[in-house]
């Protein structure tokens, strides 16, 4: 191949007009020993293409890739557990507040010790009578009167003593 031919091919190459066959010829030329000093600057380019073409996947590529993927999956699971741990922590804090806070607010917290049941009437008729008496007392007090109060109060105490 003459220097002139190479010059034409190179010009075509940089214009993007070369065919595959012509490019192969160029590569072959630059792989060779006799390169015109004028074309030396282009040698690394074509040698680079050639060397890159030879670079393939290493035999261990697939196994390396798989270990990477597995490692990533494990990392994800770890993330999820920390997320769950965070939720649990928040839940514990809320639970703690819910339990402790109302207790702090209550002075003399003897609430659970009262056994109200023993003061309860046995039948719903008695209960209704009690409730009625209580509401009558409420109504009379709301009306600002003192005259009926004693009567209703007696009613409450009377029925209260029945099942005492």
């Amino acid at each position: 191949m003459t220097t002139r031919d190479i010059q034409i091919l190179l010009d075509k190459y940089f214009e993007g007009q070369t065919s595959l066959e012509e490019e192969a010829r160029l590569k072959q030329y630059f792989q060779g020993e006799q390169i015109d000093p004028a074309f030396l600057p282009f040698q690394p380019l074509f040698q680079f293409f050639e060397s890159e073409r030879e670079t393939g996947l290493s035999p261990s590529f697939e196994s390396k890739l798989m270990t990477r993927i597995k490692a990533e999956k494990q990392a994800r699971i770890r993330n999820m557990t920390t997320y769950i741990a965070r939720i649990a922590a928040v839940a514990v804090i809320i639970l703690g507040i819910a339990i402790v806070f109302p207790k702090l607010q209550r002075p003399g917290n003897a609430v659970a010790n009262i056994n109200w049941d023993k003061y309860e009437p046995q039948t719903e008729d008695e209960a209704m009578a009690e409730a009625t008496a209580a509401l009558q007392l409420l109504a009379s007090k709301l009306n600002g009167s003192t005259k009926t109060a004693t009567h209703e109060l007696e009613q409450i105490k009377k029925s209260a003593t029945i099942f005492k």
Binding site: Y119, E120, P121, E124, A127, E130, A131, S159, K164
Partner: peptide, 14 residues
């Protein structure tokens, strides 16, 4: 003190 109590359950019955 005289104590009277009516439970939620009793109110349901009433």
């Amino acid at each position: 003190f005289t104590v009277v109590y009516i439970s939620p359950k009793m109110f349901q019955l009433i």
